[in-house]
C-alpha cells in the first residue's frame, strides 16, 4: 500500500511536468492546427536557461536564500524561453501561414533539429548535473514488509511541483476563459479569417499563444532540472513526444485534456516501471495512446467530430 501511494505521488509529479508541456502543444494545435515539433526543444531550452540562471545567481552573484533564487530563476527562464518561443514562430511558422499542411510540420522538425544542435554546439554534448537543491519531505505513511520498512513520502520538491502546476493551471484557465486575450484566442481557433475580419489581431494572438506555451514549457524545464538534477541537449525529444502523446490522449485542442493526458501518461509510466519493467515504460505509454485513439478517435476529452459530408 505504501509502495502504491509512493508511486502514485511520483506519477502525479512526472505527469504535472508532462501536462505543462502538453498545454503548449494543445494550444498551438488548437489555434493553427499544426504539430509544433520544436516545442519539446523549447522545454529543453527552458531547462538550460534555468540552469544557467541558477548558477549565475548562486556562484557569481552569491545569492544563497533558496526561495528568492528559485523565484528569480522561474521569472528569468519564463521570460527568456518565451523569447525563444516567439522567435521560432516568427521565423519558421509565420511565413508559412495559410500554406500547405506539411510545410510547417517540416519546418517544425527542422527547428527542432536546429535547437538541439545549437545547444549542443554552444553548451557541449555532456550532461549537466545539478545537485539536489530541495531535500526532505513529509512521511505520509509507513509500514513494514519483507524487505524492511517501506514508507510513502511526499517530498517538498514534489509538493512544489504539483502545487506550482496546480496554481498555473488555475491561472491559465482563468486567462483563457475570462480575458480578452483568451477570447481572441478562442475566436482564432474557431475561424481565423472571421476573427481577423472582426478586428482580432490574429498574428499577435498566435504569437502570444506561442509565448504562453513556451513560458509553461520553461516552468516544466525548471521542474525537470530540480527533480532529476540532470539535463542535456536531448531531453526535449522524448519529453516532447510524451507530452504530445499526452495532448493527443487527452484530446488535442482541449486544455483540461492536456493536463489529464499528462497526468495519465506520468502515472502509466511510473506504475509500469514500478510493477512491470522500466525498459518498456515508453512502450506502455504509447500502446495506451494507440488503444485509446482506436476506441475514442478524438481522445478522452476532445469533442467527437461528426463527419461533415
Amino acid at each position: 500500500m505504501e509502495y502504491f501511494v509512493q508511486q502514485l505521488i511520483n506519477g502525479l509529479t512526472l505527469g504535472s511536468i508532462y501536462g505543462l508541456i502538453a498545454i503548449g502543444y494543445t494550444m498551438v494545435y488548437g489555434i493553427i492546427g499544426m504539430i509544433n515539433f520544436a516545442h519539446g526543444d523549447i522545454f529543453m531550452i527552458g531547462a538550460f536557461i534555468a540552469l544557467a540562471t541558477f548558477l549565475v545567481l548562486t556562484t557569481i552573484l552569491g545569492i544563497t536564500f533558496l526561495p528568492v533564487v528559485l523565484l528569480l530563476v522561474l521569472i528569468v527562464s519564463m521570460l527568456f524561453t518565451s523569447a525563444w518561443g516567439w522567435t521560432v514562430e516568427r521565423l519558421a511558422y509565420r511565413p508559412l501561414r495559410g500554406s500547405f499542411r506539411l510545410a510547417p510540420l517540416i519546418t517544425a522538425i527542422g527547428m527542432s533539429i536546429v535547437l538541439q544542435n545549437f545547444v549542443q554546439v554552444t553548451q557541449g554534448a555532456r550532461v549537466k548535473p545539478l545537485p539536489p537543491q530541495i531535500e526532505g519531505g513529509i512521511t505520509l505513511m509507513s509500514g513494514s514488509s519483507d524487505a524492511g520498512t517501506i514508507s510513502a513520502q511526499l517530498s517538498y520538491m514534489q509538493i512544489i511541483i504539483i502545487g506550482t502546476t496546480f496554481v498555473l493551471m488555475v491561472a491559465f484557465s482563468l486567462l483563457i476563459s475570462k480575458t480578452p486575450l483568451g477570447r481572441a484566442q478562442r475566436a482564432c481557433e474557431q475561424d481565423r479569417k472571421m476573427a481577423s475580419l472582426l478586428g482580432v489581431n490574429v498574428d499577435r494572438t498566435i504569437s502570444l499563444t506561442f509565448i504562453m506555451g513556451a513560458a509553461l514549457a520553461s516552468v516544466a524545464g525548471l521542474m525537470f532540472l530540480l527533480l532529476y538534477g540532470v539535463i542535456d541537449f536531448y531531453i526535449g525529444f522524448l519529453a516532447g513526444v510524451k507530452a504530445f502523446t499526452a495532448a493527443v490522449l487527452g484530446g488535442i485542442g482541449s486544455l483540461p485534456g492536456a493536463m489529464l493526458g499528462g497526468l495519465l501518461i506520468g502515472l502509466i509510466e511510473v506504475f509500469w516501471s514500478a510493477y512491470f519493467s522500466v525498459e518498456y515504460k515508453d512502450v506502455a505509454a504509447f500502446s495506451i495512446l494507440a488503444i485509446v485513439l482506436i476506441f475514442m478517435p478524438s481522445g478522452l476529452l476532445g469533442k467527437p467530430e461528426i463527419e461533415k459530408v
Binding site: L105, V248, V283, F286, L289, P297
Partner: peptide, 28 residues
C-alpha cells in the same frame, strides 16, 4: 490495420509512437 482510420495528425503521432516502440524493443 488498427490505426489507418485515424485522421491525419493522429495517424502521425501513432506512427511516430510505433517507430519508437520498435526501437525500444530492439534495444531491450
Amino acid at each position: 490495420f488498427p490505426v489507418l482510420r485515424l485522421r491525419g495528425d493522429y495517424l502521425a503521432i501513432v506512427t511516430l509512437a510505433f517507430g519508437e516502440m520498435i526501437r525500444i524493443v530492439l534495444i531491450n
